[in-house]
C-alpha cells in the first residue's frame, strides 16, 4: 500500500526522466509540474477540468493535470509539451496557423499528439470528440482541426 501523509519526496517519471519532487497529497500535478519542475508549458486556465490548457499525457492518454493529484502519478509515465521533440503535430500547428495568443496551444498539442498516437486512423467524428476537450478563446478551432487532420490523413 502506498501511504503519503505529509510533505514527502516522491519520484515521478516525466518526459522519460526520473525526477524527485517534494509534494504533499493536496498538490495537483499541474502545480508540481509548474512550481517544482519548472515545466510551465501546461497552463493554469480554469483549474476546474473544463478548459484543457493544462493537458499533459499520462501513459499515452491525455489528462487535465489540474484534476489529478501529484501523488497519484507514482509509477506512471508523464509527458508534457516540453517532452515533445519535433513531433509532427508541432510542425503542423506552425504550418496551419493553429494558434493565436498561444495560451491554449500546449494543451491542444498534447491532445492532438495523444490522438495521433492512440488512433492514427481517427476519422472526423473521433477527431472532433477529442478536440472538444479544449477551449481556445481566440477561436482557432478550424486551423487546429486542419493541423491535426494534416498529420492523421496527410
Amino acid at each position: 500500500m502506498i501511504k503519503i501523509s505529509d510533505t514527502s519526496i516522491i519520484e515521478l517519471d516525466v518526459n522519460g526522466e526520473k525526477r524527485k519532487v517534494v509534494a504533499e497529497p493536496s498538490d495537483t500535478l499541474l502545480y508540481t509540474l509548474r512550481t517544482e519542475l519548472n515545466l510551465t508549458g501546461a497552463k493554469p486556465g480554469c483549474e476546474n477540468g473544463d478548459c484543457g490548457a493544462c493537458t499533459v499525457i499520462v501513459d499515452g492518454w491525455s489528462v487535465k493535470s489540474c484534476i489529478v493529484l501529484t501523488v497519484e502519478m507514482i509509477g506512471h509515465k508523464i509527458t508534457t509539451i516540453e517532452g515533445l521533440k519535433n513531433a509532427p503535430i508541432q510542425k503542423a500547428f506552425v504550418e496551419k496557423w493553429g494558434f493565436q495568443c498561444g495560451f491554449c496551444t500546449s494543451g491542444f498539442i498534447m491532445v492532438c499528439h495523444a490522438l495521433a498516437e492512440q488512433h492514427p486512423e481517427a476519422d472526423e467524428y473521433v477527431t472532433e470528440e477529442w478536440l472538444q476537450s479544449n477551449l481556445c478563446r481566440c477561436t482557432s478551432y478550424q486551423e487546429i482541426k486542419e493541423a491535426v487532420t494534416s498529420i492523421l490523413h496527410p
Binding site: 500500500m1 502506498i2 501511504k3 503519503i4 501523509s5 505529509d6 504533499e24 497529497p25 493536496s26 498538490d27 495537483t28 502545480y31 493529484l69 501523488v71 497519484e72
Partner: peptide, 17 residues
C-alpha cells in the same frame, strides 16, 4: 491548489481499503 491538507492512501485490496 486544494486549500487544506489531507492524507493519501492507495491500498492493494478491498479489505485493506
Amino acid at each position: 491548489m486544494i486549500p487544506f491538507k489531507f492524507e493519501y492512501y492507495k491500498p492493494d485490496t478491498l479489505k485493506e481499503a
